[in-house]
Every structure is written in structure tokens, then in C-alpha cells.
Design a protein around this nucleic acid. Structure first.
Length: 616
RNA sequence: GGGGCGGUAGCUCAAUUGGUUAGAGUACCGGACUGUCGAUCCGGUGGUUGCGGGUUCGAGUCCCGUCCGCCUCGCCA
């Protein structure tokens, strides 16, 4: 084999005159019959033009060139020379070409179902289903190679940063104990213990805490996590986290370390200097943006106008406000009226669009969305104008309205109105064109800490308390005493306790989340009590952790970053499958390997399993 | 589990109100061509319209079911 001396992206003017060997794939063939053939040779480093020149070398070399087709794998030897037909500025190697003297076909290809071309004729890539089936062909596209390279760089920067800061990279088991709260788990049967099962970890949460008890001090892992829930455009059932944990810290130390990491990562990946990150409480985020991961790159903030709305003679508002009126403020079941003022919306948001909003908010459980315009003459128009008219001055003052603005109203219980308003705000922002392009295209990267999450929330179905983050999340340091002393039935106090948790939000997307963990047994017992776990039940589920914590646990805390989402930001895609080498479909299938697939009866028998699935 | 969109040549798409032999570009095959770089020019092969039913004189088109993919609600501590 003609082993390469260079790759296909590195030859320049300075190599002219040298004899070189290149290996790669035939990217395109441009023939000129009996005399001259051009072939672009591709590897992941670039393209180099090869020339088969009949004048210099006689017809034999052209016979060989004629046999080559797109995606054949070849090795060539030849001489570098300045291009005879002028340079091609589109290629890094565009000043030179290699005059081929020897060709070796390393691997002849079948006609591929599609060519790995980032700019195919017609401008559209083959559909994703086909590209996933032939993933190895799709990954040959330069842009996919670029993504894989960026991902590799991001994980290297990650390891460098945390290694420099004293973290140990430690692997934790993939076959693990089932702890069935949280996401649905993937299960793996045990051959040695008939009827018993492993679970694949939703995250290495408990192991990393135990590593702190084990004296590892600082732990890092770039790990695979598994959650058997329906995927989305930005979510796979099998995904990667940058997972870490630190000993002898409180919230500030973890946040400082994370911010340093984000700063380093963005500098190296995007050349962007991350400014000091602002902090916002969960409550403020919910009030102003209706979501716990607010996109603060634009305004359109949500206002609570419940008091004003109560005085309006409008049935929809009155009915909503009557709900749970005796409940405390921010109670999820207390009625509220929320408003979003849209500057310039009167003109831009047509009836058709606002009708669409009414439909849109229904998907989040809201009944609809009332609309009013303040026209260019300063007159309230359309929708519910007549109900607002008697309170016009107050409405204008409360929402800071100017002629030409529009207001969208949501009236419902707090949880529904807030969520619907938050989602609607983002949709309106897209429609109004006020969302900046992602940072990879020059727009701002907007980082934000969200802190002071409630420790507990009521489960929608059962009505029981559930941990908002997970049951090992500590209360904020100044809240621990009040928490331990609060009676279980003291709804208002329990609901007001905030945790020592923190999320990093980037442009409205949660990219990391974590917390300081409980290392105090009184606090941990109280959490279990609230969650309705008896000491026996807690012991059965988490005995290994509780036992570990009882043998000298250092105060500790940690965080996990969603690696796939980080990479999506650096490559500028909104499709998570683009940043995973071998992704799965929405039904968890791998279209290349055709997993999942049936297994033999013998395999099942060995695992003491019988399938009850019946073929239709 | 619910809602929406899609599936026509290897690929990207078209096909009037249900109406002749389902077309185009590209890929592929053959031919021409000595400076191309999305090469060009000429010719050709290529179809179970995802699958199964139904309505109709007639179905790519309408109806029912089903499979697959995507988006989304629920779900994702």
C-alpha cells in the first residue's frame, strides 16, 4: 500500500516539486476524455485536487483514472505542482494539485445511496431517516466531521480544566441498582439472580456522592446517562453528561468552579469571553418569564395584573381569580391574571396570528388568550377592549403601553397561567423577530444562574410532596434550621423553603444543574419524612448511601452539564442527533444496527425471562 | 398515551377537480471532450407511489387501518 506522507488538507505552495502520497476517498470526478482527468481526493482534513495528465504520462494513467468512482478509497503517489488552471480559492489546498503517477485502489465502493455532500444539488440533504441508516456515509460530510472534532475538543478542554483544578476522573457502573423515582429506567436482567434486575443509571448521582465519602475530594466523569422517556429535538434517551462533585464546599465554591469552567470552555470553543454571570431566583424567573430557564436576551416580560383585573367587569378574569383565592400567593392552584405587553405588536401580530396563540396556549392547559391592541391613535381595540376601557389609564401605566402595542392576557390558576405565559412569550418573541441569533453566528451568549429553587413541590397527580431536584438536595444554608423545625403539615413554610441548588441557563436553555447535598442526618430524615418515606423504606431504597453518609461524610456538592446541548451551541444546530455520532430515533431505534431487535428463546431462558409479546 | 406534518425513480422533488403510457433535476450506465473545480454536451437504464383494505368505470390523489420518520403535549427527580 502507498502509505500517505500527507493528509488531504495540508499541501501548500511550499510543497511544490515534492513527491507525495495521499490516501482518501474520491470526492468528485471531472473527466476530459482521453487527455485529462481531475479528481478531488477527500479525507477528514480536506480536499486535494489530483490530476491524471495524459500528455505527461501517456494514456495508461487515464485508464486507471477512468475506473474511479465517487467514494472509492484510493492511494496515490504524485508530484505537487502549482495548478495549471489557476487557483481555487474555495479550497485550502486550492493553489496546488498533485500530478498522479501511481494509483492503488484500496477499496472499491458499491454505488452509495447518497453522496456525503454538504451542499448537494437542490440544496437539501437526503432525509434524516436515510442518513441515519447509512450513518457512516453521512458522517463523511465535512460538516459532520467538524462536529465530531468540536465534540472531541470540548471534552479535552473539560478534562484539562478539571484536572488542573484537582479533579479525578473516575468511572462509575453502568449496571446499577434500580431506584425508581424520577425518569423511567432501562432494565437489564440478571443471569445469576433469577427475577432480579439491574437498571442503567439516569445519572451517577449516588455514586459521585459516595466518592466524596470515599475521600476522592473532587470527581469528574464524562458519562453516559439513560432515561427511558420520549425524546425531543434536544433530548435523547441515551445522552452524555459532564458530571462532577466537590468536597468541603458550599454553594459559592461550586458556582465559582462552574463559572470558571464555562468561561474557559467558551473561550476555547467560541473565542467568547463570558462576562460575570448574573443570578436570578427561581421565583423571579417564574414571575418575570414564566419559566425556570428564562431567555433574558429580550424583554416581553410577564406582568401579574391580578389586582387590577379583579376590578374589571370581565367574567373570564373574575372566574379565574375566584379559584383558590384563599391560597397563599404563588400557590400553584391560586387564580391569577398575567399579561404580556408586545411593543409594536398591534400592527405585526395579525388576527390570524393571535388566534394561533389562543390555540397554542391550550396545549399547556390554558383556556385561551385574550388580546387587546392600543392602536396608533391610542385607542383600545379588538378583543376585550370594552372591559379594559374603564381602567385604560391604569392598564397603560401598569404595562407601560405606547400606541401601537398589543397586550396578551392569560387568566388561570398560577401554574397554568404562568407556564402558558412563559411559553407564549417565547413564541411571540420569535414571531416579532426579537430573538438574537445564537452566539456561533455572532449574537450574544446570555448566561444566567437560576438559584433558590423550592425544595419541594406538590405532585400533580398524587398531591404529595416531591423533591424538585432530588431527595439529597440540601436546603440553602440559612434555611436548614427552619426546615428541620417546620411541622410536616405547615404547608406554607415547607413550600417556602428554598434549596442550595443552581442551574446555568444559556439563551433560555438549561445547560447545567446541581446542588449542595445533604450531609446532615437530621435534614435527610426530614426530607424522607416529607416525601412520605418511612425510615424503613428510605433504608431499603438508599441504604448504601445512608450508610455511607453515616461514616464521616464531608460537606459536598456538585453539578452536571448536558454535554450534547453544549456541543449543539458550539456547532449551531437545534437537532441533538447532529452532535451524537450514532443517535437514536424518537422510538429509541438505531436505524443503522436496527436495535432493538428480537433475541432467541435460548437467550431469554438463560435469563429466566419469558416474553408475553404476541405477534399480530 | 394525545395532537400535527411527512413517506412518489438510488437521492431531491413535481404530477390541475379522481382521468391518456407517473415527469424533471441529480445519481448511475454508455459515448464525446486537454484546465476542470456543482465541468460541459449527447444518449440510455431506472417506479409494488411505505404497507393492507375500501369507494369508484377509473386512485399517487378520496376513505379506513397499519408501519416508519420528524415536530410537539404529557413525560424527562
Amino acid at each position: 500500500m502507498l502509505i500517505r506522507t500527507h493528509n488531504c488538507g495540508e499541501l501548500r505552495d511550499k510543497h511544490v516539486g515534492q513527491t507525495v502520497r495521499l490516501n482518501g476517498w474520491v470526492n468528485s470526478y471531472r473527466g476530459h476524455g482521453t487527455g485529462l482527468v481531475f479528481i478531488d481526493l477527500r479525507d477528514r482534513f480536506g480536499l486535494t485536487q489530483l490530476v491524471f495528465d495524459g500528455e505527461d504520462l501517456g494514456p495508461a494513467i487515464l485508464d486507471q483514472a477512468d475506473k474511479l468512482r465517487n467514494e472509492d478509497v484510493v492511494a496515490v503517489e504524485g508530484t505537487v505542482r502549482v495548478r495549471g488552471g489557476g487557483p481555487n480559492p474555495k479550497l485550502l489546498t486550492g493553489n496546488i494539485e498533485v500530478v498522479v503517477t501511481k494509483v492503488e485502489v484500496l477499496s472499491k465502493t458499491e454505488v452509495p445511496p447518497f453522496l456525503p455532500d454538504d451542499n448537494p444539488t437542490g440544496g437539501k440533504l437526503p432525509n434524516e431517516e436515510l442518513r441515519l441508516k447509512y450513518r457512516y456515509l453521512d458522517l463523511r460530510r465535512p460538516s459532520m466531521q467538524n462536529i465530531l472534532a468540536k465534540r472531541a475538543k470540548a471534552t479535552k478542554v473539560t478534562r484539562d480544566y478539571f484536572y488542573e483544578n484537582g479533579f479525578l476522573e473516575i468511572e462509575t457502573p453502568v449496571l446499577y441498582k434500580s431506584t425508581p423515582e424520577g425518569a423511567r429506567e432501562f432494565l437489564v436482567p440478571s443471569r445469576h439472580q433469577p427475577g432480579e434486575w439491574y437498571a442503567l443509571p439516569q445519572s451517577p448521582q449516588l455514586f459521585k456522592q459516595i466518592l466524596m465519602v470515599a475521600g476522592c475530594d473532587r470527581y469528574l466523569q464524562i458519562c453516559r446517562c439513560f432515561r427511558d422517556e420520549d425524546p425531543r429535538a434536544d433530548r435523547q434517551s441515551e445522552f452524555s453528561q459532564i458530571d462532577l462533585e466537590m468536597s468541603f464546599v458550599r454553594r459559592e465554591q461550586v458556582m465559582e468552579m462552574m463559572e470558571g469552567f464555562v468561561r474557559r470552555l467558551w473561550k476555547e470553543m467560541a473565542g467568547f469571553e463570558v462576562p460575570p454571570m448574573q443570578r436570578m431566583t427561581y421565583r423571579e424567573a417564574m414571575e418575570r418569564y414564566g419559566i425556570d430557564r428564562p431567555d433574558t436576551r429580550y424583554g416581553l416580560e410577564i406582568r401579574d395584573i391580578s389586582e387590577l383585573a379583579a376590578r374589571m367587569d370581565f367574567g373570564v378574569f373574575k372566574d379565574a381569580l375566584a379559584k383558590g383565592a384563599d391560597r397563599p400567593k404563588f400557590s400553584s392552584r391560586r387564580g391569577v391574571v398575567k399579561a404580556i405587553a408586545v411593543p409594536g405588536g398591534a400592527e405585526k401580530l395579525t388576527r390570524k396570528i393571535t388566534d394561533g396563540y389562543a390555540e397554542y396556549v391550550k396545549t399547556f392547559g390554558a383556556g385561551g388568550c385574550a388580546v387587546v391592541k392600543l392602536n396608533a391613535q391610542g385607542v383600545l381595540e379588538t378583543g376585550i377592549a370594552k372591559f379594559l376601557e374603564p381602567h385604560k389609564a391604569e392598564v397603560i401605566a401598569a404595562l407601560g403601553l405606547k400606541p401601537g402595542d398589543m397586550v396578551l392576557f392569560l387568566a388561570d390558576v398560577y401554574s397554568v397561567a404562568t407556564k402558558a405565559a412563559g411559553e407564549l412569550r417565547q413564541k411571540v418573541a420569535r414571531d416579532m423577530g426579537v430573538v438574537p441569533r445564537p452566539g456561533s453566528e455572532g449574537g450574544p451568549w446570555n448566561f444566567l444562574w437560576v438559584i433558590d429553587f423550592p425544595m419541594f413541590e406538590r405532585d400533580k397527580e398524587s398531591g404529595r410532596w416531591i423533591a424538585m431536584h432530588h431527595p439529597f438536595t440540601a436546603p440553602r444554608d440559612d434555611q436548614a434550621e427552619a426546615f428541620v423545625n417546620a411541622p410536616v403539615e405547615d404547608e406554607e413554610t415547607i413550600a417556602s423553603i428554598v434549596s442550595a441548588g443552581y442551574d446555568i441557563v444559556l439563551n433560555g436553555q438549561e445547560i447545567a444543574g446541581g446542588s449542595v447535598r445533604i450531609h446532615d442526618r437530621a435534614v435527610q430524615s426530614k426530607v424522607f419524612q416529607l416525601l412520605g418515606l418511612s425510615p424503613e423504606q428510605a433504608k431499603e431504597k438508599f441504604s448504601f448511601l445512608l450508610e455511607a453518609l453515616s461514616y464521616g461524610a464531608p460537606p459536598h456538592g456538585g453539578v452536571a452539564f448536558g454535554l450534547d446541548r453544549l456541543i449543539m451551541n458550539f456547532v449551531g444546530t437545534d437537532n441533538i442527533r447532529d452532535v451524537i455520532a450514532f443517535p437514536k430515533t424518537q422510538t429509541g431505534a438505531d436505524l443503522m444496527t436496527l436495535a432493538p431487535s428480537p433475541v432467541t428463546e435460548a437467550q431469554l431462558k438463560e435469563l429466566y425471562i419469558k416474553s408475553t409479546y404476541e405477534k399480530k
